[in-house]
């Protein structure tokens, strides 16, 4: 009798608890003690594990910032590497709390998938990489080329549209995992590798001889990349959104990981509010008032994160360009904390 009853009871319990999940993400996270963060399977500069399994990158910093804001500890994050195709299902099903994986904000994803984009931490666009030996200098010379890319991304549609509008022939070879795209391109299956320009700079580092490949000047699409959360939990959406804004605001106000303690004594009321010395902005997010101070102390401001992960001093050598602050002619702009 025991043999029959046990599975039945377990089954019944599973059936009931399934309904209760994901009511309040912040409570869930506090209960489990960490943020579950969906990242790529290894994209240098954005989300990449080192040899000891330590994740770093611009996208990783968003999750670390959230952990710092919630727990005061940037290490209170667990990472789930996801392929482009898996990522949205992982988020919708509650497997991850945030998706921070070079994901383009598009209308379709924002509306049809039941997701919310919490800002843009990197303004990007799709580009092409070819072997220097082909002697190609413009994407418009690519008619008839074989092009390798990832399935489940915005890239397939962009590149087909581009080739169609310019009346060029296209053989599009689509792989599920980024590492296979790199391997196939490297072994000569394709003439061209197309994805986000940032992705090209990052993946180029994985090629046998990176110096033999060049990224063409044409950028064929807008790819605003940012963190994503599930629709329906506004407070959690606010937290993730404001973690990014806090990093941008800190850069604008000159607050860095090095001077954050000293800044707490500043006479500037905006800085005092930001660091939680005055006002109660953290409480309104359901966090402590030093939430932003914790982010900056551990992860740094947007400029620090950018320079450390993808900037000119890194192997990716990416300039700030459109990702500079609005006040420096770029697009990064955060609403004020007030």
């Amino acid at each position: 009798m025991k043999r029959v009853v046990l599975p039945v009871v377990v089954g019944a319990m599973l059936g009931m608890t399934a309904t209760a999940a994901n009511a309040d993400t912040l409570d869930d996270i506090k209960a489990k003690g960490h943020v579950q963060c969906g990242v790529s399977q290894g994209l240098p500069g954005f989300s990449n594990p080192d040899s000891s399994g330590n994740w770093t990158g611009l996208d990783v910093d968003v999750c670390r910032g959230v952990a710092a804001a919630v727990f005061g500890d940037p290490e209170a994050v667990k990472f789930s590497p996801l392929s482009a195709k898996e990522r949205f299902t992982a988020l919708s099903s509650g497997e991850v709390d945030i998706l921070s994986r070079n994901t383009t904000w598009t209308m379709g994803r924002d509306t049809a998938l039941g997701l919310n984009f919490a800002g843009v931490n990197y303004y990007d666009g799709q580009g092409f990489m070819v072997r220097k030996s082909l002697g190609v200098s413009s994407a418009l010379e690519l008619s008839g080329a074989s092009v390798c890319t990832n399935t489940g991304t915005t890239t397939e549609l962009n590149v087909s549209d581009y080739f169609r509008t310019n009346n060029m022939d296209l053989e599009l070879v689509q792989f599920e995992k980024a590492d296979e795209v790199v391997a196939a391109y490297d072994s000569g299956r394709c003439d061209v590798y197309t994805t986000d320009a940032s992705g090209l700079y990052a993946q180029r580092l994985k090629l046998e001889d990176a110096t033999k490949h060049v990224v063409l000047p044409e950028i064929i699409s807008k790819e605003p990349l940012g963190p994503v959360v599930r629709q329906g939990d506004d407070n959690w959406f606010n937290i993730v959104k404001w973690v990014h804004f806090a990093m941008v605001n800190a850069e604008e106000m000159g607050i860095t990981s090095a001077n954050v303690e000293e800044m707490k004594g500043s006479g500037n009321p905006a800085i005092r509010r930001f660091l939680g010395v005055e006002g109660s902005f953290g409480e309104k997010l359901g966090l402590n008032n030093d939430w932003a101070a914790n982010i900056i102390a551990s992860v740094g401001n947007y400029a620090e994160s950018f320079e450390r992960n993808v900037g000119p001093a890194t192997p990716l050598k990416i300039e700030r360009g459109v990702n500079a602050l609005w006040s420096a002619g770029g697009l990064q702009y955060a609403p004020p904390i007030r």
Binding site: A84, K85, F88, G108, R109, A112, L113, T151, G152, T153, E156, L157, Q174, E176
Partner: peptide, 9 residues
């Protein structure tokens, strides 16, 4: 199908 799934949701 996977590509379509991704494009249409």
């Amino acid at each position: 199908g996977g590509t379509i799934l991704n494009q249409t949701g």
